[in-house]
């Protein structure tokens, strides 16, 4: 499986993913890695329901998702194109370390929560998020903040992280 997009988005499967990125990149498999959703059949049903039937959807715990990524790592010629989704940078970092090394991660939406500060208008972070972003940068992963295809990409770099850290 080739990963066409690894995206951090706390809205998980929604229009920007299925319509925006989906129509641009045409993935045939969406892997959503989230422990809470994977453990709740109702949430699984809601998130599955909005995806076209031609696209396979796997909703997995982070450890199951990492195992899946390891298992399909060598099968480069299987024609599978995967869109990998997590709700936060910690889960994506787990997949990066235990599933498959990611050269690029798309930061698509981390909305405001109490205790978080604005890094970008659609990216709010706390100490744990900053630490996860730093770990990605340290391993050479490019962090591209962009909500939808065609929008301007902002690279999340150390300078931005230092700026926001002063406000935390």
């Amino acid at each position: 499986m080739r990963i066409v997009l690894a995206r951090i988005d706390d809205r998980f499967i929604h229009g920007q993913v299925t319509v925006g990125w989906g129509q641009q990149l045409r993935p045939n498999h969406i892997i959503l890695a989230n422990n809470e959703i994977a453990a709740d059949s109702w949430q699984c049903r809601v998130y599955r329901s909005s995806v076209a039937p031609s696209i396979r959807v796997s909703i997995l715990s982070t450890s199951e998702a990492a195992a899946t990524l390891r298992a399909v790592r060598e099968q480069t010629g299987d024609g599978a194109t995967g869109l990998l989704l997590t709700g936060n940078p910690q889960d994506m970092l787990f997949l990066h370390r235990h599933g498959r090394s990611l050269a690029e991660v798309n930061v698509g939406g981390m909305h405001y929560q109490p205790g978080k500060q604005e890094l970008l208008p659609f990216v709010y972070v706390d100490d744990r998020d900053v630490a996860a972003f730093r770990a990605f940068l340290a391993s050479g992963t490019l962090l591209q903040a962009r909500q939808v295809p065609g929008a301007r990409t902002t690279l999340i770099e150390e300078r931005l992280l230092r700026d926001v850290e002063r406000r935390l």
Partner: peptide
């Protein structure tokens, strides 16, 4: 507004 979007997901949840 749109089935399959974040509003519809949240409403169902």
């Amino acid at each position: 507004d749109d089935y399959g979007g974040s509003c519809a997901n949240a409403a169902q949840l």
